[in-house]
């Protein structure tokens, strides 16, 4: 009798343990999904403004790198030189946004003013931004491509639920601007039919400048979150293609705010799962589980969606075409 009770207890106990384990697993995956999706969301929302105005943004990667490096460098400087302590990550965050903006100005001038090919300029920015952080960190920190470590309590807040709230507010703001304001209407019309917008008295280049510069600020912000939020320093090429994943999410989200956010969450989820599998579980042979196939998911999905296999994803009609005013 006593023995039977013991078994019952044990099985009850282990089920409860399993439940707790499952629940904490779900929570931890959800939290890391939000954390990993955040830089993607910021960059993708940036790309949204740029691409809806008709300017392709493969330079998101470069802008994120600029933001990430500058944010870490400025935070470190504010911490050690100015001694502002816990205020330093906010100064760093501002630095990251300014860096993204600065790169966006170069990009905008070459694409809009000089009507350079947008993909070529974007590729140039990306190559430039692989080099610049290394170049500057060698000079500033005598290191080969990374900034010094920033103390843990001088980083951005990392509570995933707080960040989720910020992202939701941002989503609301962006949807409002895009669909409910005159600026949003002009932005979309310039991306779809610049000739008509021009005829209606809208300055195509001014709207496109705004779109590209906003993209720079948001991508810089995304990069900053990567270096002084998720991590505590900048390391060489730390974005590791996240700018391109953000671009993929934008396409997967059909250039609309809510689906783009969902796509970023999906891609953040795949990254969270691959990290989880990599760290915890092993194959019987002792090797890590092949996460390469999970890592491929965002890219494969983007190709599939772009080809129109799952619903169609149609880019803004004037995307990538420099606008030339008729004389």
């Amino acid at each position: 009798m006593g023995f039977g009770r013991k078994v019952l207890d044990a099985s009850f106990e282990s089920k409860r343990m399993r439940d707790i384990f499952t629940w904490s697993l779900i929570v931890s995956v959800a939290e890391s999904t939000i954390r990993l999706a955040t830089p993607l969301v910021l960059a993708a929302f940036g790309g949204l403004f740029s691409e809806r105005s008709g300017v392709i943004n493969i330079a998101l990667e470069g802008k994120m790198l600029a933001g990430a490096f500058t944010a870490a460098a400025v935070t470190y400087a504010a911490d050690t030189r100015l001694g502002v302590g816990t205020a330093s990550p906010w100064i760093g965050l501002l630095g990251g946004m300014v860096a993204g903006l600065f790169i966006a100005v170069i990009y905008a001038v070459s694409c809009i003013k000089y009507k350079a090919d947008q993909v070529v300029s974007g590729a140039a920015i990306n190559i430039l931004m692989i080099g610049i952080p290394g170049f500057l960190s060698g000079a500033l920190f005598l290191s080969s491509g990374s900034t010094p470590q920033i103390p843990k309590d001088h980083l951005l807040p990392q509570s995933p639920w707080l960040i989720a709230l910020v992202i939701l507010l941002l989503l609301a703001a962006i949807s409002y601007v895009l669909y409910k304001t005159p600026f949003g209407l002009r932005l979309r019309s310039v991306g779809e039919n610049p000739e008509a917008a021009d005829a209606a008295g809208v300055s195509v280049s001014r709207i496109r400048y705004s779109g590209v510069l906003l993209a720079g600020v948001l991508a810089g912000l995304g990069g900053a979150y990567l270096s002084i939020g998720q991590s505590s320093l900048f390391t060489r090429n730390m974005t590791a293609g996240r700018g391109f994943i953000a671009l993929a999410a934008l396409i997967f989200g059909k250039w609309r705010p809510v689906p783009t956010l969902l796509a970023c969450l999906l891609f953040g989820f795949t990254e969270a799962v691959s990290i989880l599998l990599q760290g915890v579980y092993k194959l019987p042979s002792g090797e890590d589980i092949p996460v390469q196939f999970i890592n491929m998911v965002p890219y494969v999905l983007t190709i599939v969606v772009l080809a129109g296999f799952i619903g169609s994803s149609r880019p803004p009609r004037a995307l990538g075409i420099p606008y030339e005013k008729e004389k």
């Binding site: 170069i106 350079a116 590729a123 430039l128 692989i130 080099g131 610049i132 170049f135």
Partner: peptide, 20 residues
């Protein structure tokens, strides 16, 4: 101070100039 990253930097600037 200068590191070999200068090569990437120069490359990026060259393409930017060519694009414009």
């Amino acid at each position: 101070h200068v590191t070999k990253d200068i090569v990437q930097v120069l490359q990026g600037i060259i393409i930017l100039f060519i694009a414009a």
